[in-house]
Simulated scan of single mutants.
Amino acid sequence: MTKRKITGPKPVIFFLLKLTVIMFFIAPFYISIVYAVKSPEETIKTGLAFPTGIYWENFTEAVRVSNFFSAAKNSVIVTAACVLILMVVCTMAAYVIARNLKSRLYSGMYYFFLAAIMLPFQVVMMPLYVQLKNMGLLNTRIGLILTISGFQTAYNIFVYVGFIRTIPVEMEEAAYIDGAGKFYTFWKIVFPLMKPIISSTLVLNALTVWNDFTTSLIIAQRPEVRTIPLTQYFFFGEYNIELNMAFAAFVMAMIPIIILYLLMQKYIIGGVMAGAVKG
């Protein structure tokens, strides 16, 4: 018997839904690129229509006006340092917590980090500013790195603990029998097995730090320590708005993070889902 092909409105509806979702996600990129490559005059006349040519002056002027490369250097340093700190510190802390969750001490620490995830930044904004000022860390890269890393720690530990609990303990016990210590066992056995979740959180942490605006606005007030998100201020004045240059700077800013995402995208969904299996 041959199967009859199902026909009807459902395939058409599903196709239209998929097309709507695709357009919803593509639209911001299209708008950004169109405004970035148009001249102000063409933008006024044609709006979101496809550009007739590329107006490269938007990019050169955006770099000059906002001191873009200095901000890009600060963003790279802060992002790389935060990602490295979170990867090393949080994996080790999560390993200890995951293997000792039956203890009241470590169980309490675990739930403390869970509670910290729900803590709004606005609650600690003023005390944080005063503390950093008293410690001499205001308007410094170190202060920005420590602050952003601190706010990302709770989420990273939560995800890492869930993933580590899926790793069989017997593998570590075999290493202990062979005379390996805890430090060696973690870095040589457990850490390599965490590659999917580490790759996933690496991209998510890099994306969060690279696009951070609120924390940077409070801590990095001097021009020499400003990051890329703060450069958008240069294009929005009290009496005029340089919309095309703002989008040009935005397009340049998102290129590195898009490249990182494309290189490691296969790990993101699988890694986060694996870390959420047990918690």
Rank of each mutant, 00 (worst) to 15 (best):
S216L: 14
L217K: 08
L217I: 01
L217F: 13
I218Q: 13
I219W: 05
I219T: 05
I219G: 04
A220C: 14
A220S: 15
A220M: 10
Q221I: 11
R222V: 07
R222K: 14
P223H: 03
P223A: 10
E224V: 02
E224S: 09
V225K: 02
V225M: 02
V225D: 09
V225Y: 04
R226I: 07
R226E: 13
R226V: 08
T227N: 10
T227Y: 06
T227A: 08
T227C: 09
T227I: 09
T227Q: 08
I228W: 05
I228D: 11
I228R: 01
P229W: 05
P229S: 11
P229Q: 08
P229I: 02
L230Q: 06
L230I: 02
L230H: 02
L230N: 08
L230W: 00
L230A: 09
T231K: 04
T231L: 04
Q232T: 12
Q232N: 15
Y233I: 03
Y233D: 08
F234W: 04
F235L: 00
F235M: 00
F236E: 01
G237L: 03
G237N: 00
G237M: 01
G237I: 03
G237H: 01
E238T: 07
E238Q: 08
E238W: 08
E238G: 01
E238S: 10
Y239Q: 07
Y239D: 05
Y239P: 02
Y239K: 04
N240Q: 14
N240F: 03
I241S: 12
E242C: 02
E242I: 03
E242K: 02
L243G: 06
N244A: 08
N244S: 07
M245L: 10
A246H: 04
A246F: 04
F247Y: 12
F247A: 10
A249W: 07
A249Q: 11
F250Y: 14
F250G: 14
F250K: 12
F250S: 14
F250A: 15
F250P: 00
F250R: 15
V251C: 15
V251I: 15
V251M: 15
M252G: 14
M252K: 09
A253I: 12
M254L: 14
M254R: 07
I255Y: 05
I255R: 06
I255S: 10
I255L: 10
P256A: 05
P256H: 01
I257A: 09
I257F: 01
